[in-house]
Amino acid sequence: MDLAPESDLVWRALAETRSDEQLMSAYVAGDTAAFRALFERYAPLLLRSMLRELYVREEANDLVQQTFLQLHRARLDFDSGQKLKPWLFTIALNLKREYFRRKKRRPERSLEGEAAVEPAVEALGAAQVDARRTLGRALGALPADQREVIELHWFGGLDFPEVASVVGASVSAVKVRAHRGYVRLREVLGGDAPLPPLPVEGGEPSERRNRTTRRSI
């Protein structure tokens, strides 16, 4: 398959206008720029998902690569009547599970490991880095089925029927797992630590530190 790189303008324009399913259909028909658009759209999201549990950027990157390689090999299975996103996350989570089963255990949490995948402290602010670490630990402490549902629902942006199709459970079971997971997270995180401001797209680190959370309550 010819994968000569398209100009940035062309594939960025494609990514903005077409849906996931249109891009995938185009790729199956031979449009390689469409595959790059899909990659640019979902690779960061999948990488964040992998890094929340792997802590080694190279291995997380490798799993993201494998996900898209599997998507390529399975391209003729694509049904344009079905959504692509749940399928993509199914592949990613299966590969992640298989990775941990090969490793026999989940990696030990360590400050060095967490620091290896976090942006530099000066880019975010110490408070935000600490909050992110706390949240990461809280997520890691959840049972696997609850963590996966929250991963897909909150961080992946899938609705509950889509999450149910990925994890192979009923919608009601998925909702119960999500509720239990959110309750557990709230208990673990507690209510004493001050909340750092929410990060915004772009901006200098000082802007991020000084910006306050917009609250409409």
Binding site: E40, A43, L189, I217
Partner: peptide, 18 residues
Amino acid sequence: DAQLGRRLAEEQSPPADG
């Protein structure tokens, strides 16, 4: 005070280099 919602929304790492 929407603590969990706000904490979860903070989990936005910088995008990977595509």
